[in-house]
Nucleic acid binder design. Structure first.
Lengths: 286, 286
DNA sequence: CATATTGATCGAAAAATTCGATCGATATGG
DNA sequence: CCATATCGATCGAATTTTTCGATCAATATG
Protein backbone atom coordinates (compact mmCIF):
# COMPACT_ATOMS: atom_id res chain seq x y z
CA UNK A 1 0.00 0.00 0.00
CA UNK A 2 1.21 3.43 -0.96
CA UNK A 3 1.40 6.23 1.56
CA UNK A 4 0.27 8.69 -1.11
CA UNK A 5 -3.00 6.77 -1.17
CA UNK A 6 -3.45 7.26 2.54
CA UNK A 7 -2.57 10.90 2.22
CA UNK A 8 -5.19 11.21 -0.50
CA UNK A 9 -7.75 9.58 1.76
CA UNK A 10 -6.98 12.17 4.42
CA UNK A 11 -7.21 15.02 1.94
CA UNK A 12 -10.59 13.82 0.68
CA UNK A 13 -11.78 13.37 4.26
CA UNK A 14 -10.66 16.93 5.02
CA UNK A 15 -12.11 18.62 1.95
CA UNK A 16 -15.09 16.33 1.39
CA UNK A 17 -14.43 16.72 -2.30
CA UNK A 18 -12.41 14.66 -4.75
CA UNK A 19 -11.71 17.59 -7.05
CA UNK A 20 -10.40 19.88 -4.36
CA UNK A 21 -8.39 17.05 -2.83
CA UNK A 22 -6.84 16.50 -6.25
CA UNK A 23 -5.91 20.16 -6.53
CA UNK A 24 -4.26 20.15 -3.12
CA UNK A 25 -2.31 17.04 -4.03
CA UNK A 26 -1.52 18.27 -7.54
CA UNK A 27 -3.17 15.34 -9.26
CA UNK A 28 -6.39 14.92 -11.21
CA UNK A 29 -9.71 13.92 -9.72
CA UNK A 30 -9.56 10.55 -11.45
CA UNK A 31 -6.25 9.83 -9.76
CA UNK A 32 -7.74 10.62 -6.38
CA UNK A 33 -10.69 8.42 -7.22
CA UNK A 34 -8.42 5.54 -8.20
CA UNK A 35 -6.30 5.95 -5.09
CA UNK A 36 -9.25 5.96 -2.74
CA UNK A 37 -10.72 2.96 -4.51
CA UNK A 38 -7.42 1.10 -4.20
CA UNK A 39 -7.35 1.87 -0.50
CA UNK A 40 -10.95 0.79 -0.06
CA UNK A 41 -10.26 -2.38 -1.97
CA UNK A 42 -7.21 -3.14 0.18
CA UNK A 43 -9.17 -2.58 3.38
CA UNK A 44 -12.23 -4.28 2.02
CA UNK A 45 -14.63 -1.61 3.18
CA UNK A 46 -16.01 1.58 1.64
CA UNK A 47 -14.47 4.55 3.41
CA UNK A 48 -16.70 7.24 1.94
CA UNK A 49 -20.36 7.58 1.12
CA UNK A 50 -20.45 9.18 -2.30
CA UNK A 51 -23.49 11.32 -2.45
CA UNK A 52 -25.19 14.42 -3.71
CA UNK A 53 -22.91 17.32 -2.80
CA UNK A 54 -19.64 15.59 -2.10
CA UNK A 55 -18.54 12.74 0.13
CA UNK A 56 -18.70 11.86 3.81
CA UNK A 57 -16.77 9.31 5.81
CA UNK A 58 -18.42 6.01 6.57
CA UNK A 59 -18.15 4.48 10.03
CA UNK A 60 -15.23 2.43 8.74
CA UNK A 61 -13.68 5.58 7.28
CA UNK A 62 -13.88 7.38 10.57
CA UNK A 63 -12.42 4.40 12.35
CA UNK A 64 -9.55 4.32 9.89
CA UNK A 65 -8.92 8.05 10.04
CA UNK A 66 -6.78 8.16 13.15
CA UNK A 67 -4.58 5.35 11.90
CA UNK A 68 -4.21 7.11 8.59
CA UNK A 69 -3.02 10.21 10.40
CA UNK A 70 -0.63 8.14 12.50
CA UNK A 71 0.75 6.34 9.47
CA UNK A 72 1.39 9.45 7.42
CA UNK A 73 2.81 11.30 10.39
CA UNK A 74 5.19 8.48 11.34
CA UNK A 75 6.51 8.22 7.80
CA UNK A 76 6.77 11.96 7.32
CA UNK A 77 8.54 12.47 10.60
CA UNK A 78 10.92 9.59 9.99
CA UNK A 79 11.82 11.00 6.61
CA UNK A 80 12.33 14.46 8.08
CA UNK A 81 14.53 13.21 10.88
CA UNK A 82 16.57 10.98 8.66
CA UNK A 83 16.89 12.96 5.46
CA UNK A 84 19.79 15.26 4.83
CA UNK A 85 19.16 18.97 4.47
CA UNK A 86 19.32 20.17 0.88
CA UNK A 87 22.84 20.30 -0.48
CA UNK A 88 24.59 18.23 2.16
CA UNK A 89 26.57 15.09 1.62
CA UNK A 90 26.39 13.51 5.06
CA UNK A 91 25.57 14.30 8.65
CA UNK A 92 27.03 13.89 12.10
CA UNK A 93 24.87 13.60 15.19
CA UNK A 94 26.49 14.80 18.37
CA UNK A 95 25.06 14.82 21.84
CA UNK A 96 26.54 16.70 24.75
CA UNK A 97 25.92 17.69 28.31
CA UNK A 98 24.75 21.26 28.73
CA UNK A 99 27.85 22.25 30.69
CA UNK A 100 30.14 21.13 27.88
CA UNK A 101 28.06 22.78 25.21
CA UNK A 102 29.51 26.25 25.53
CA UNK A 103 32.95 25.08 26.34
CA UNK A 104 33.48 22.77 23.38
CA UNK A 105 30.60 22.17 21.04
CA UNK A 106 29.89 25.83 20.41
CA UNK A 107 33.43 26.18 19.09
CA UNK A 108 33.32 22.89 17.24
CA UNK A 109 30.39 23.98 15.10
CA UNK A 110 32.20 26.72 13.14
CA UNK A 111 35.25 24.45 12.85
CA UNK A 112 33.13 21.77 11.22
CA UNK A 113 31.28 24.24 9.03
CA UNK A 114 34.53 25.45 7.55
CA UNK A 115 36.36 22.12 7.46
CA UNK A 116 33.43 20.09 6.12
CA UNK A 117 30.86 22.53 4.76
CA UNK A 118 28.84 19.76 3.09
CA UNK A 119 28.25 17.84 6.31
CA UNK A 120 25.07 18.61 8.19
CA UNK A 121 25.25 18.76 11.98
CA UNK A 122 22.62 17.38 14.27
CA UNK A 123 23.15 18.53 17.84
CA UNK A 124 21.40 17.73 21.05
CA UNK A 125 22.10 18.66 24.63
CA UNK A 126 20.94 15.99 26.99
CA UNK A 127 21.89 14.18 30.17
CA UNK A 128 24.49 11.51 30.20
CA UNK A 129 22.55 8.29 30.77
CA UNK A 130 20.14 8.65 27.87
CA UNK A 131 23.02 9.82 25.73
CA UNK A 132 25.05 6.69 26.32
CA UNK A 133 21.99 4.70 25.32
CA UNK A 134 21.62 6.66 22.12
CA UNK A 135 25.28 6.13 21.34
CA UNK A 136 24.94 2.41 21.97
CA UNK A 137 21.86 2.33 19.72
CA UNK A 138 23.78 4.21 17.07
CA UNK A 139 21.38 7.14 17.22
CA UNK A 140 24.27 9.46 17.95
CA UNK A 141 27.68 9.45 16.28
CA UNK A 142 29.56 11.29 19.02
CA UNK A 143 28.85 11.97 22.67
CA UNK A 144 30.72 14.57 24.69
CA UNK A 145 30.36 14.18 28.44
CA UNK A 146 31.87 13.78 31.84
CA UNK A 147 31.81 10.26 33.25
CA UNK A 148 30.77 8.02 30.39
CA UNK A 149 29.86 4.45 31.11
CA UNK A 150 31.97 1.95 29.25
CA UNK A 151 29.94 -0.01 26.75
CA UNK A 152 31.35 -2.61 24.37
CA UNK A 153 31.62 -1.31 20.84
CA UNK A 154 32.01 2.27 21.97
CA UNK A 155 35.40 3.98 22.18
CA UNK A 156 36.05 6.49 24.96
CA UNK A 157 38.74 9.09 24.63
CA UNK A 158 39.79 11.82 27.04
CA UNK A 159 39.11 15.13 25.42
CA UNK A 160 40.35 17.59 28.01
CA UNK A 161 41.02 17.71 31.72
CA UNK A 162 39.40 20.52 33.60
CA UNK A 163 41.11 21.74 36.74
CA UNK A 164 38.84 22.36 39.67
CA UNK A 165 40.44 24.88 42.01
CA UNK A 166 39.35 26.20 45.36
CA UNK A 167 38.39 29.88 45.27
CA UNK A 168 37.10 32.20 47.95
CA UNK A 169 35.56 35.65 48.10
CA UNK A 170 38.21 36.60 50.70
CA UNK A 171 41.93 36.41 50.03
CA UNK A 172 43.47 33.52 51.94
CA UNK A 173 46.26 31.11 51.25
CA UNK A 174 45.11 28.08 53.18
CA UNK A 175 41.94 26.07 53.27
CA UNK A 176 39.17 28.33 54.50
CA UNK A 177 36.91 28.08 57.48
CA UNK A 178 35.15 24.88 56.55
CA UNK A 179 31.50 24.39 57.18
CA UNK A 180 31.02 28.09 57.82
CA UNK A 181 31.13 29.38 54.26
CA UNK A 182 32.33 26.47 52.12
CA UNK A 183 29.98 25.48 49.37
CA UNK A 184 30.16 21.93 48.18
CA UNK A 185 29.46 21.72 44.49
CA UNK A 186 28.70 18.30 43.09
CA UNK A 187 30.99 17.95 40.08
CA UNK A 188 30.20 14.29 39.66
CA UNK A 189 31.25 11.00 41.14
CA UNK A 190 34.98 11.26 40.36
CA UNK A 191 35.18 14.61 42.12
CA UNK A 192 33.25 13.25 45.08
CA UNK A 193 35.77 10.45 45.57
CA UNK A 194 38.82 12.75 45.28
CA UNK A 195 37.20 15.31 47.54
CA UNK A 196 36.45 12.75 50.20
CA UNK A 197 40.04 11.51 50.11
CA UNK A 198 41.54 15.00 50.35
CA UNK A 199 39.26 16.23 53.09
CA UNK A 200 38.58 13.06 54.99
CA UNK A 201 38.00 14.82 58.28
CA UNK A 202 35.70 17.46 56.86
CA UNK A 203 32.25 17.83 58.29
CA UNK A 204 29.26 18.05 56.03
CA UNK A 205 29.27 21.56 54.50
CA UNK A 206 26.29 23.76 55.26
CA UNK A 207 25.59 24.43 51.62
CA UNK A 208 25.87 21.92 48.84
CA UNK A 209 24.84 22.59 45.30
CA UNK A 210 24.06 20.30 42.45
CA UNK A 211 24.75 22.63 39.59
CA UNK A 212 28.04 24.53 39.18
CA UNK A 213 26.61 27.81 37.96
CA UNK A 214 24.27 27.98 40.95
CA UNK A 215 27.12 27.51 43.40
CA UNK A 216 29.16 30.23 41.77
CA UNK A 217 26.26 32.67 41.82
CA UNK A 218 25.71 31.88 45.48
CA UNK A 219 29.22 32.65 46.71
CA UNK A 220 29.43 35.75 44.53
CA UNK A 221 26.23 37.00 46.13
CA UNK A 222 26.68 35.86 49.72
CA UNK A 223 30.42 35.25 50.03
CA UNK A 224 32.08 31.92 50.59
CA UNK A 225 34.37 29.41 48.96
CA UNK A 226 34.14 26.36 46.78
CA UNK A 227 35.65 24.34 43.96
CA UNK A 228 35.12 25.60 40.45
CA UNK A 229 36.67 25.04 37.04
CA UNK A 230 39.75 27.23 36.70
CA UNK A 231 38.57 28.25 33.26
CA UNK A 232 35.22 29.47 34.58
CA UNK A 233 36.61 31.59 37.43
CA UNK A 234 39.71 32.97 35.72
CA UNK A 235 38.07 36.28 34.73
CA UNK A 236 36.68 36.67 38.26
CA UNK A 237 40.15 36.09 39.72
CA UNK A 238 41.50 38.85 37.49
CA UNK A 239 38.80 41.25 38.69
CA UNK A 240 39.66 40.38 42.29
CA UNK A 241 36.10 39.33 42.89
CA UNK A 242 37.44 35.90 43.82
CA UNK A 243 40.75 34.74 45.24
CA UNK A 244 42.43 31.43 44.67
CA UNK A 245 43.29 29.35 47.71
CA UNK A 246 46.68 28.35 46.40
CA UNK A 247 47.53 25.82 49.09
CA UNK A 248 44.41 23.79 48.54
CA UNK A 249 44.62 20.69 46.34
CA UNK A 250 43.60 20.89 42.71
CA UNK A 251 41.18 18.27 41.42
CA UNK A 252 40.98 16.99 37.93
CA UNK A 253 37.79 16.54 36.04
CA UNK A 254 38.20 14.92 32.66
CA UNK A 255 35.72 15.29 29.85
CA UNK A 256 35.44 12.51 27.29
CA UNK A 257 34.22 11.94 23.82
CA UNK A 258 32.51 8.67 23.05
CA UNK A 259 32.01 7.23 19.60
CA UNK A 260 31.46 3.96 17.80
CA UNK A 261 34.49 1.78 17.45
CA UNK A 262 33.10 0.61 14.12
CA UNK A 263 31.38 3.54 12.46
CA UNK A 264 29.62 3.38 9.11
CA UNK A 265 31.76 6.25 7.80
CA UNK A 266 35.15 6.00 9.45
CA UNK A 267 36.72 8.87 7.52
CA UNK A 268 33.95 11.31 8.31
CA UNK A 269 33.96 10.38 11.98
CA UNK A 270 37.75 10.77 12.15
CA UNK A 271 37.52 14.27 10.76
CA UNK A 272 34.81 15.23 13.22
CA UNK A 273 36.82 13.79 16.09
CA UNK A 274 39.92 15.66 14.94
CA UNK A 275 37.88 18.85 15.09
CA UNK A 276 36.82 18.11 18.64
CA UNK A 277 40.40 17.41 19.70
CA UNK A 278 41.41 20.68 18.13
CA UNK A 279 38.84 22.82 19.92
CA UNK A 280 39.58 20.92 23.12
CA UNK A 281 43.27 21.85 22.90
CA UNK A 282 42.30 25.46 22.40
CA UNK A 283 39.93 25.36 25.33
CA UNK A 284 42.44 23.69 27.64
CA UNK A 285 42.96 25.34 30.98
CA UNK A 286 46.68 25.82 30.36
CA UNK B 1 6.35 5.76 -0.87
CA UNK B 2 5.15 2.22 -0.51
CA UNK B 3 4.67 0.61 2.87
CA UNK B 4 6.00 -2.68 1.47
CA UNK B 5 9.29 -0.87 0.97
CA UNK B 6 9.40 0.13 4.61
CA UNK B 7 8.48 -3.37 5.64
CA UNK B 8 11.34 -4.65 3.50
CA UNK B 9 13.71 -2.23 5.19
CA UNK B 10 12.65 -3.61 8.57
CA UNK B 11 13.06 -7.18 7.42
CA UNK B 12 16.56 -6.50 6.10
CA UNK B 13 17.43 -4.69 9.33
CA UNK B 14 16.18 -7.68 11.29
CA UNK B 15 17.87 -10.41 9.25
CA UNK B 16 20.93 -8.47 8.12
CA UNK B 17 20.62 -10.25 4.83
CA UNK B 18 18.86 -9.34 1.60
CA UNK B 19 18.29 -12.94 0.56
CA UNK B 20 16.70 -14.04 3.79
CA UNK B 21 14.63 -10.86 3.92
CA UNK B 22 13.39 -11.72 0.43
CA UNK B 23 12.41 -15.21 1.50
CA UNK B 24 10.47 -13.92 4.48
CA UNK B 25 8.68 -11.42 2.27
CA UNK B 26 8.16 -13.92 -0.55
CA UNK B 27 10.01 -11.86 -3.12
CA UNK B 28 13.39 -12.18 -4.78
CA UNK B 29 16.59 -10.63 -3.50
CA UNK B 30 16.69 -8.20 -6.40
CA UNK B 31 13.25 -6.93 -5.42
CA UNK B 32 14.41 -6.33 -1.88
CA UNK B 33 17.48 -4.57 -3.24
CA UNK B 34 15.37 -2.34 -5.46
CA UNK B 35 12.95 -1.55 -2.63
CA UNK B 36 15.68 -0.61 -0.21
CA UNK B 37 17.37 1.49 -2.85
CA UNK B 38 14.11 3.27 -3.60
CA UNK B 39 13.67 4.00 0.09
CA UNK B 40 17.24 5.23 0.42
CA UNK B 41 16.79 7.41 -2.63
CA UNK B 42 13.57 8.86 -1.25
CA UNK B 43 15.20 9.62 2.09
CA UNK B 44 18.42 10.73 0.46
CA UNK B 45 20.65 8.75 2.80
CA UNK B 46 22.11 5.27 2.76
CA UNK B 47 20.35 3.18 5.39
CA UNK B 48 22.66 0.17 5.30
CA UNK B 49 26.37 -0.37 5.01
CA UNK B 50 26.72 -3.19 2.52
CA UNK B 51 29.71 -5.21 3.42
CA UNK B 52 31.43 -8.54 3.56
CA UNK B 53 29.06 -10.86 5.43
CA UNK B 54 25.76 -9.06 5.11
CA UNK B 55 24.55 -5.59 5.93
CA UNK B 56 24.39 -3.32 8.98
CA UNK B 57 22.34 -0.23 9.65
CA UNK B 58 23.96 3.15 9.21
CA UNK B 59 23.39 5.91 11.75
CA UNK B 60 20.65 7.20 9.50
CA UNK B 61 19.19 3.73 9.25
CA UNK B 62 19.06 3.35 12.98
CA UNK B 63 17.48 6.75 13.33
CA UNK B 64 14.85 5.81 10.78
CA UNK B 65 14.16 2.41 12.29
CA UNK B 66 11.73 3.48 15.01
CA UNK B 67 9.70 5.55 12.56
CA UNK B 68 9.61 2.63 10.16
CA UNK B 69 8.20 0.46 12.92
CA UNK B 70 5.67 3.13 13.83
CA UNK B 71 4.60 3.59 10.21
CA UNK B 72 4.09 -0.09 9.50
CA UNK B 73 2.37 -0.66 12.80
CA UNK B 74 -0.03 2.26 12.34
CA UNK B 75 -1.02 1.09 8.88
CA UNK B 76 -1.30 -2.54 9.87
CA UNK B 77 -3.37 -1.77 12.92
CA UNK B 78 -5.62 0.60 11.01
CA UNK B 79 -6.25 -2.02 8.37
CA UNK B 80 -6.96 -4.63 11.01
CA UNK B 81 -9.39 -2.44 12.89
CA UNK B 82 -11.15 -1.27 9.79
CA UNK B 83 -11.23 -4.35 7.62
CA UNK B 84 -14.11 -6.74 7.67
CA UNK B 85 -13.58 -10.28 8.86
CA UNK B 86 -13.43 -12.79 6.02
CA UNK B 87 -16.80 -13.48 4.47
CA UNK B 88 -18.73 -10.54 5.89
CA UNK B 89 -20.57 -7.89 3.96
CA UNK B 90 -20.67 -5.08 6.50
CA UNK B 91 -20.23 -4.39 10.19
CA UNK B 92 -22.03 -2.69 13.04
CA UNK B 93 -20.18 -1.18 15.98
CA UNK B 94 -22.17 -1.07 19.19
CA UNK B 95 -21.11 0.31 22.54
CA UNK B 96 -22.93 -0.30 25.78
CA UNK B 97 -22.73 0.15 29.49
CA UNK B 98 -21.71 -2.94 31.40
CA UNK B 99 -25.02 -3.12 33.23
CA UNK B 100 -26.99 -3.21 29.98
CA UNK B 101 -24.70 -5.75 28.40
CA UNK B 102 -26.27 -8.83 29.90
CA UNK B 103 -29.75 -7.47 29.81
CA UNK B 104 -29.89 -6.50 26.15
CA UNK B 105 -26.77 -6.84 24.09
CA UNK B 106 -26.12 -10.45 25.00
CA UNK B 107 -29.52 -11.32 23.54
CA UNK B 108 -29.09 -9.00 20.59
CA UNK B 109 -26.01 -10.81 19.35
CA UNK B 110 -27.71 -14.11 18.42
CA UNK B 111 -30.64 -12.17 16.97
CA UNK B 112 -28.26 -10.32 14.65
CA UNK B 113 -26.27 -13.42 13.80
CA UNK B 114 -29.41 -15.16 12.58
CA UNK B 115 -31.11 -12.15 10.99
CA UNK B 116 -27.99 -10.76 9.30
CA UNK B 117 -25.38 -13.52 9.27
CA UNK B 118 -23.13 -11.63 6.89
CA UNK B 119 -22.79 -8.59 9.14
CA UNK B 120 -19.82 -8.53 11.49
CA UNK B 121 -20.42 -7.21 15.00
CA UNK B 122 -17.98 -5.00 16.86
CA UNK B 123 -18.91 -4.67 20.51
CA UNK B 124 -17.47 -2.67 23.34
CA UNK B 125 -18.58 -2.15 26.90
CA UNK B 126 -17.57 1.24 28.16
CA UNK B 127 -18.79 4.13 30.23
CA UNK B 128 -21.29 6.59 28.93
CA UNK B 129 -19.30 9.80 28.43
CA UNK B 130 -16.62 8.36 26.18
CA UNK B 131 -19.29 6.42 24.38
CA UNK B 132 -21.25 9.53 23.47
CA UNK B 133 -18.04 11.00 22.10
CA UNK B 134 -17.41 7.94 19.99
CA UNK B 135 -20.97 8.10 18.67
CA UNK B 136 -20.55 11.76 17.85
CA UNK B 137 -17.27 10.98 16.09
CA UNK B 138 -18.96 8.19 14.19
CA UNK B 139 -16.68 5.56 15.70
CA UNK B 140 -19.73 3.70 16.96
CA UNK B 141 -22.95 3.05 15.09
CA UNK B 142 -25.15 2.40 18.10
CA UNK B 143 -24.87 3.20 21.77
CA UNK B 144 -27.01 1.58 24.45
CA UNK B 145 -27.01 3.42 27.76
CA UNK B 146 -28.87 5.10 30.56
CA UNK B 147 -28.83 8.89 30.48
CA UNK B 148 -27.42 9.82 27.12
CA UNK B 149 -26.44 13.40 26.49
CA UNK B 150 -28.28 14.96 23.59
CA UNK B 151 -25.95 15.79 20.76
CA UNK B 152 -27.03 17.26 17.43
CA UNK B 153 -26.95 14.69 14.69
CA UNK B 154 -27.61 11.82 17.06
CA UNK B 155 -31.05 10.33 17.54
CA UNK B 156 -32.05 9.09 20.99
CA UNK B 157 -34.79 6.52 21.39
CA UNK B 158 -36.18 4.95 24.55
CA UNK B 159 -35.45 1.27 24.42
CA UNK B 160 -37.04 0.01 27.61
CA UNK B 161 -38.12 1.36 30.95
CA UNK B 162 -36.83 -0.49 33.96
CA UNK B 163 -38.96 -0.39 37.09
CA UNK B 164 -37.05 0.23 40.28
CA UNK B 165 -39.01 -1.19 43.21
CA UNK B 166 -38.40 -1.09 46.93
CA UNK B 167 -37.57 -4.49 48.39
CA UNK B 168 -36.70 -5.56 51.90
CA UNK B 169 -35.32 -8.66 53.59
CA UNK B 170 -38.29 -8.54 55.99
CA UNK B 171 -41.92 -8.67 54.84
CA UNK B 172 -43.58 -5.26 55.25
CA UNK B 173 -46.16 -3.35 53.34
CA UNK B 174 -45.13 0.24 54.05
CA UNK B 175 -41.93 2.17 53.77
CA UNK B 176 -39.39 0.60 56.10
CA UNK B 177 -37.54 2.05 59.00
CA UNK B 178 -35.54 4.64 57.14
CA UNK B 179 -31.98 5.35 57.93
CA UNK B 180 -31.71 2.20 60.03
CA UNK B 181 -31.46 -0.40 57.28
CA UNK B 182 -32.25 1.40 54.04
CA UNK B 183 -29.54 1.26 51.45
CA UNK B 184 -29.44 4.06 48.94
CA UNK B 185 -28.28 2.81 45.57
CA UNK B 186 -27.23 5.41 43.06
CA UNK B 187 -29.15 4.53 39.91
CA UNK B 188 -28.14 7.74 38.17
CA UNK B 189 -29.24 11.33 38.10
CA UNK B 190 -32.85 10.75 37.04
CA UNK B 191 -33.38 8.35 39.91
CA UNK B 192 -31.77 10.80 42.32
CA UNK B 193 -34.25 13.53 41.36
CA UNK B 194 -37.31 11.26 41.61
CA UNK B 195 -36.06 9.82 44.86
CA UNK B 196 -35.55 13.25 46.38
CA UNK B 197 -39.07 14.29 45.36
CA UNK B 198 -40.72 11.16 46.76
CA UNK B 199 -38.83 11.13 50.03
CA UNK B 200 -38.28 14.82 50.60
CA UNK B 201 -38.18 14.47 54.37
CA UNK B 202 -35.83 11.51 54.38
CA UNK B 203 -32.62 11.77 56.29
CA UNK B 204 -29.38 10.69 54.70
CA UNK B 205 -29.33 6.89 54.66
CA UNK B 206 -26.58 5.18 56.61
CA UNK B 207 -25.44 3.15 53.64
CA UNK B 208 -25.27 4.38 50.08
CA UNK B 209 -23.84 2.38 47.25
CA UNK B 210 -22.61 3.37 43.82
CA UNK B 211 -23.08 0.09 42.06
CA UNK B 212 -26.36 -1.84 42.04
CA UNK B 213 -24.94 -5.33 42.41
CA UNK B 214 -22.97 -4.30 45.48
CA UNK B 215 -26.07 -2.94 47.19
CA UNK B 216 -28.02 -6.09 46.51
CA UNK B 217 -25.25 -8.29 47.88
CA UNK B 218 -25.10 -6.11 50.95
CA UNK B 219 -28.76 -6.39 51.94
CA UNK B 220 -28.83 -10.10 51.16
CA UNK B 221 -25.87 -10.56 53.48
CA UNK B 222 -26.72 -8.12 56.26
CA UNK B 223 -30.42 -7.51 55.85
CA UNK B 224 -32.02 -4.23 54.82
CA UNK B 225 -34.01 -2.58 52.08
CA UNK B 226 -33.42 -0.64 48.93
CA UNK B 227 -34.49 0.10 45.38
CA UNK B 228 -33.57 -2.41 42.73
CA UNK B 229 -34.69 -3.24 39.21
CA UNK B 230 -37.80 -5.45 39.37
CA UNK B 231 -36.27 -7.72 36.80
CA UNK B 232 -33.15 -8.28 38.89
CA UNK B 233 -34.94 -9.13 42.14
CA UNK B 234 -37.87 -11.12 40.75
CA UNK B 235 -36.25 -14.54 41.33
CA UNK B 236 -35.31 -13.47 44.88
CA UNK B 237 -38.90 -12.42 45.54
CA UNK B 238 -40.09 -15.83 44.43
CA UNK B 239 -37.66 -17.54 46.79
CA UNK B 240 -38.92 -15.35 49.62
CA UNK B 241 -35.41 -14.10 50.21
CA UNK B 242 -36.71 -10.61 49.53
CA UNK B 243 -40.13 -9.00 49.97
CA UNK B 244 -41.55 -6.20 47.95
CA UNK B 245 -42.68 -3.07 49.78
CA UNK B 246 -45.87 -2.69 47.77
CA UNK B 247 -46.94 0.65 49.12
CA UNK B 248 -43.70 2.36 48.21
CA UNK B 249 -43.52 4.35 44.98
CA UNK B 250 -42.07 2.73 41.87
CA UNK B 251 -39.41 4.67 39.99
CA UNK B 252 -38.75 4.48 36.32
CA UNK B 253 -35.32 4.16 34.81
CA UNK B 254 -35.31 4.31 31.04
CA UNK B 255 -32.54 2.89 28.89
CA UNK B 256 -31.90 4.44 25.51
CA UNK B 257 -30.30 3.62 22.24
CA UNK B 258 -28.41 6.34 20.46
CA UNK B 259 -27.52 6.34 16.80
CA UNK B 260 -26.67 8.65 13.95
CA UNK B 261 -29.61 10.51 12.47
CA UNK B 262 -27.86 10.28 9.11
CA UNK B 263 -26.06 6.93 8.91
CA UNK B 264 -23.96 5.79 5.98
CA UNK B 265 -26.06 2.63 5.64
CA UNK B 266 -29.61 3.46 6.70
CA UNK B 267 -31.06 0.07 5.88
CA UNK B 268 -28.46 -1.85 7.84
CA UNK B 269 -28.81 0.43 10.84
CA UNK B 270 -32.59 0.12 10.76
CA UNK B 271 -32.36 -3.66 10.87
CA UNK B 272 -29.92 -3.55 13.77
CA UNK B 273 -32.17 -1.12 15.63
CA UNK B 274 -35.20 -3.33 14.98
CA UNK B 275 -33.28 -6.18 16.57
CA UNK B 276 -32.56 -4.10 19.64
CA UNK B 277 -36.21 -3.07 19.95
CA UNK B 278 -37.17 -6.70 19.68
CA UNK B 279 -34.86 -7.97 22.44
CA UNK B 280 -35.88 -4.98 24.56
CA UNK B 281 -39.55 -5.93 24.31
CA UNK B 282 -38.69 -9.45 25.38
CA UNK B 283 -36.60 -8.18 28.26
CA UNK B 284 -39.29 -5.75 29.43
CA UNK B 285 -40.25 -5.93 33.09
CA UNK B 286 -43.89 -6.70 32.23
C1' DC C 1 42.76 -21.55 -5.62
C1' DA C 2 38.13 -23.36 -6.00
C1' DT C 3 33.79 -22.44 -3.91
C1' DA C 4 30.04 -20.22 -1.60
C1' DT C 5 27.81 -16.10 -0.23
C1' DT C 6 26.94 -11.39 -0.49
C1' DG C 7 24.45 -7.31 -2.76
C1' DA C 8 24.26 -4.69 -7.29
C1' DT C 9 22.92 -4.45 -11.92
C1' DC C 10 20.63 -5.24 -16.30
C1' DG C 11 16.84 -6.14 -19.61
C1' DA C 12 12.37 -7.80 -20.30
C1' DA C 13 7.89 -8.62 -18.69
C1' DA C 14 4.24 -7.39 -15.78
C1' DA C 15 1.70 -4.43 -12.97
C1' DA C 16 0.38 -0.08 -11.29
C1' DT C 17 -0.48 4.55 -11.76
C1' DT C 18 -1.81 8.60 -14.06
C1' DC C 19 -4.17 11.53 -17.15
C1' DG C 20 -7.81 13.42 -20.08
C1' DA C 21 -12.19 12.75 -21.81
C1' DT C 22 -16.59 11.33 -21.03
C1' DC C 23 -20.67 9.49 -18.54
C1' DG C 24 -24.49 9.42 -15.42
C1' DA C 25 -26.51 11.21 -11.32
C1' DT C 26 -27.91 14.97 -8.68
C1' DA C 27 -28.72 19.61 -7.33
C1' DT C 28 -29.67 24.68 -8.60
C1' DG C 29 -31.85 28.50 -10.80
C1' DG C 30 -34.85 30.43 -14.03
C1' DC D 1 -39.80 21.73 -16.79
C1' DC D 2 -35.40 22.41 -18.60
C1' DA D 3 -30.73 24.35 -18.92
C1' DT D 4 -26.72 24.39 -16.25
C1' DA D 5 -23.25 23.27 -12.86
C1' DT D 6 -21.10 20.02 -9.86
C1' DC D 7 -19.93 15.61 -8.29
C1' DG D 8 -17.61 10.99 -8.58
C1' DA D 9 -17.07 6.81 -11.63
C1' DT D 10 -15.28 4.89 -15.62
C1' DC D 11 -12.61 3.94 -19.74
C1' DG D 12 -8.52 3.58 -22.74
C1' DA D 13 -3.95 4.97 -23.65
C1' DA D 14 0.46 6.47 -22.17
C1' DT D 15 3.62 6.29 -18.64
C1' DT D 16 5.93 4.83 -14.70
C1' DT D 17 7.03 1.56 -11.36
C1' DT D 18 7.80 -2.93 -9.84
C1' DT D 19 9.26 -7.50 -10.24
C1' DC D 20 11.81 -11.32 -11.75
C1' DG D 21 15.64 -14.15 -13.39
C1' DA D 22 20.18 -14.13 -14.81
C1' DT D 23 24.52 -12.47 -14.24
C1' DC D 24 28.38 -9.79 -12.23
C1' DA D 25 31.85 -8.26 -8.91
C1' DA D 26 33.54 -8.46 -4.36
C1' DT D 27 34.51 -10.91 -0.43
C1' DA D 28 34.99 -14.69 2.70
C1' DT D 29 35.87 -19.92 3.54
C1' DG D 30 38.08 -24.21 3.33
Amino acid sequence: MNIEHIRSFLEVAATGNFHRAGEHLHVTQSTVSARVQALEHRIGQPLFTRGRGGVALTTAGRRFHRYAVATVRAWEQGRQETALPEGFRASIALGTQVSLWERLVLKWIPWMRSALPDVALRLEADYSPSQMQKLADGLLDIGVMYMPRHIPGLAVETLLVEKLVLVSTRPCKVAPDWVADYVFVDWGEDFLVQHRQAFADMETPAVSVGLGAMGLQHILASGGSGYFPLRAVQPLLKDKRLYRVTKAPVFKRPAYMVYSADPSDQKLLDQALAGLRHVAREAADG
